[in-house]
Simulated scan of single mutants.
Amino acid sequence: MTWEQYAAAWSALHGGFDPRTASPVVRGWVRLAYRGGSLLGRWRVGPTTVTVAGLLLCAGVPFVPLLAGAVLVLLASFADALDGAVAVVTGRTTRLGFVYDSVADRLGELAWLAAFWVAGVPGWLVVAALAVSWLHEYVRARAAAAGMDGLGVVTVGERPTRVSVAVSGLVAGGVAGLVHPGWDRTVVLVAVLVWILLGLIGLAQLLAAVRRTLVD
């Protein structure tokens, strides 16, 4: 499968969002996933195997030091991109696989936030952050079921933002803890607050788009 064919298929699976016209970072990330997915497809590695591997990486995040957790989040995020790439390249995209991937994403985010809780963030803030991100995905899913075409809008609270906040928070928290014991708690607390703030803004953007699209 050529890059052009892959980009078209990827766009159809992501609400019409075309990676060929995206920012250099997004375009580069999708192209990297395409190359990795093509390689794994030649090795006969299935998309479900990659999904499970990514979920296992996420499961380890709360049990390792913050800096190591950041590495696991990055690897899991790449696995998340690779499973879809393998499915597209090998022609094994299924509706059931889409559901499995979505469930794995939510469980992965739960593990990332659990790492912040282990690092000292109050439990109620962690639950709030989880609720905001899950509500974002739930609203989009229900809006799509109600007839909204595509993503509706790309918000500041999308999954790539959560990945960035998780990695940045874990890295900064790990470094801060090495510099001065106790600073790591402050840093991870700020990271969770940023997660919540961006999530709320993104949810507001999404609700506005849903209203514009579905209003009678």
Rank of each mutant, 00 (worst) to 15 (best):
L135H: 11
T2H: 06
R92C: 03
R31Q: 14
A79I: 11
G123I: 01
A141E: 11
R185W: 07
A33D: 14
G54Y: 08
Y138K: 03
Y34A: 03
L66Q: 08
A81M: 15
A119N: 01
A22V: 03
D149A: 14
G169D: 10
L189P: 08
G54H: 05
V126W: 02
L178S: 13
G36I: 10
V61Y: 01
A111H: 09
L39M: 14
E109F: 14
A204N: 07
G46K: 13
V190L: 15
P181V: 07
A70H: 09
A143N: 07
F17P: 00
A129G: 10
Q205D: 02
R44W: 12
P160L: 12
T155V: 12
L200D: 03
G16M: 00
Y138C: 06
R27F: 04
G173T: 06
T186D: 13
L66F: 09
G54T: 06
S77A: 15
V73G: 08
W10E: 07
L39Q: 11
D101P: 07
V192A: 05
L207H: 04
G169H: 09
T155Y: 09
G97K: 04
L57T: 02
G182R: 08
P47R: 08
L107T: 00
R92Y: 05
R27T: 09
S164E: 12
A141R: 10
T21C: 08
L197E: 12
A141L: 14
G28I: 03
V210T: 02
L113Y: 05
R212P: 00
R44G: 10
S168E: 07
V89G: 09
V61W: 01
V187G: 09
L82Y: 08
L67F: 09
V175S: 03
S23P: 00
V163H: 14
T94W: 01
P122N: 00
V64A: 01
G36F: 07
V194M: 02
V153S: 13
T49F: 11
A12W: 00
V179N: 06
A81L: 15
L66E: 11
